[in-house]
Design a protein around this nucleic acid. Structure first.
Length: 364
DNA sequence: GAGGCGTGGGT
DNA sequence: TACCCAAGCCT
C-alpha cells in the first residue's frame, strides 16, 4: 500500500483521519535522538546498518524478546559473519545453534533465505520491499524493516509496538487481529519525509520503553499531547484484542533409552510441523486423550521402567505433559532404523528444543 | 484468514 | 496459578 507522507496535504480516501490529530513525526525523531536504545544489531547514530545484521536480528526478534535474542545473535554473527557464510553452513548446524529460541521454521527459512540472497541477488540483500518479501521467511513486517533500517527506504514495519502505539494515538476501538489493516493505514499517515529507518526504530523503542502494554509512561511520551487514548484516560485499554481460545493439554510418554556407555537414543522430527527438523527423544504421539497403548510405541524392546516424573511444557497452542519411561541397555546395542545413539558430550551438536532438554534431565 | 508454530519472563 | 506478553510468517 502506498500512502501520502502527509495526509493533510495529500488526502486519502482509504481511512478517515481525525482532523485534530497532529502526531508530529519530528517530535518522535527528536525523542529517539535523545533516548535511542543501544542494541547489538544497531548502527551508530548517523550510520547505515548492515543489511545482514538487520536481517539476522529481525528474524530472531519475531515474537521474541531482545534479552532472549541477544546471545543467539552474538553467536550467529561470530559463527557466520556474513550472508555468504550463512549460506555455506549446513542446515543441521543452523538448527542446533537455533535450539532453544523457538519457532524453528524461522531457522530453516533463515538458512534458505541466505542461500536465495546469494543465488538470486549475488549475495547482496535487495533494497526494495517487494524483492525482500519474495525471500523465504521474510513477510511484510521484515521486508519493511530491512528496507527502512538498512536502506532508509520509505517503509512502515508495523509490528506489535507500532500497532499498540497507533491504536492508542487514534483510540482505535476495533479489536485485533481484525483491526490490522486499519492500524496499518493509520500508521502510514505518521511517516516522516525522511529518516525512515530511524523512525521505524523510534516507534519500536517508544512501544518497548514508554508505550508499554501495561502502565504506559505517558508523562514521558513525545506524543502525549495529541494521544487520543491518553485523553480518554485509559491508554492501557488499547489495543483492543479478541479473546484467544483456551489451550488444551496433550499427553504422551517419552522413552529414555540409555546405553551402558552413556549414549541416549534419539531421532529427528519430520522437517515440517511442530519442532520441525529438531532432535528428540522418541515418544508416543502427544494427544489430548493420552498415550494409549504405550509399549506399542517403544523404539525397542527393553525392560522399561516408568519414572515417577512428569515433564510439563507450554507450547503456543497446547500444554504438554510428558511421562518418562526409562530403560538401560548394553553398550553394543544397535540403534533401530531412524534412530541414533548420542553421548552427552555430543548433545551440543544436536538440535534439542527446550522441551527435550527437560526430558534429558532424567538420564541420570 | 484463522490457526499452527516455542520459549522464557512478568504479574 | 494461569494467564499475558515479545521487532511475525506460512498455509
Amino acid at each position: 500500500m502506498v500512502a501520502a507522507a502527509n495526509p493533510a496535504r495529500h488526502p486519502t480516501h482509504a481511512v478517515p483521519v481525525p482532523a485534530a490529530a497532529s502526531h508530529d513525526p519530528q517530535a518522535l525523531l527528536d525523542w529517539y535522538d535523545r533516548h535511542r536504545r543501544r542494541l547489538p544489531w544497531r548502527a551508530e547514530p548517523g550510520q547505515t546498518a548492515d543489511p545482514y545484521h538487520v536481517f539476522l536480528s529481525e528474524i530472531m526478534l519475531q515474537q521474541t524478546t531482545v534479552v532472549t535474542v541477544a546471545p543467539y545473535y552474538a553467536d550467529f554473527l561470530a559463527r557466520w559473519p556474513d550472508v555468504a557464510a550463512l549460506a555455506r553452513a549446513r542446515l543441521e548446524e543452523v538448527l542446533s545453534r537455533w535450539a532453544g529460541l523457538g519457532y524453528y521454521a524461522r531457522a530453516r527459512n533463515l538458512h534458505a533465505c541466505a542461500r536465495a540472497v546469494v543465488e538470486r541477488h549475488d549475495g547482496r540483500f535487495p533494497a526494495e520491499e517487494a524483492a525482500l518479501r519474495a525471500l523465504p521467511g521474510i513477510g511484510p513486517y521484515t521486508a519493511a524493516a530491512i528496507a527502512s533500517i538498512a536502506f532508509d527506504r520509505r517503509a512502515a514495519p508495523v509490528d506489535g509496538n507500532w500497532e499498540r502505539v497507533v491504536a492508542r494515538l487514534f483510540a482505535v476501538e476495533e479489536a485485533l487481529p481484525k483491526a490490522r489493516a486499519k492500524l496499518r493505514a493509520l500508521a502510514l499517515t505518521l511517516l516522516p519525509d525522511a529518516r525512515f529507518g530511524d523512525f521505524a526504530q523510534a516507534m519500536m523503542d517508544l512501544g518497548a520503553t514508554l508505550c508499554t502494554p501495561r502502565k504506559p509512561a505517558c508523562a514521558l511520551c513525545p506524543w502525549r499531547e495529541s494521544c487520543a487514548a491518553r485523553a480518554d484516560g485509559a491508554p492501557e485499554r488499547y489495543p483492543v484484542k479478541t479473546a484467544k481460545a483456551a489451550r488444551p493439554t496433550r499427553r504422551g510418554i517419552a522413552f529414555l533409552a540409555l546405553r551402558a556407555d552413556g549414549a541416549v537414543l534419539v531421532r529427528s522430527r519430520p522437517e515440517k510441523g511442530l519442532l520441525g527438523g529438531m532432535s528428540e527423544v522418541p515418544s508416543t504421539p502427544w494427544e489430548v486423550d493420552g498415550p494409549g497403548h504405550v509399549a506399542a510405541h517403544a523404539p525397542l524392546q527393553a525392560d522399561w521402567k516408568a519414572l515417577n516424573a512428569t515433564v510439563t511444557h507450554a507450547f503456543s497452542h497446547f500444554a504438554l505433559e510428558l511421562g518418562i519411561w526409562r530403560a538401560r541397555l548394553p553398550a553394543k546395542m544397535a540403534a533401530p532404523a531412524g534412530h541414533r545413539w548420542v553421548r552427552p558430550a555430543q548433545f551440543e551438536a544436536e538440535a534439542f528444543p527446550s522441551v527435550m532438554v527437560k526430558v534429558l534431565e532424567y538420564i541420570d
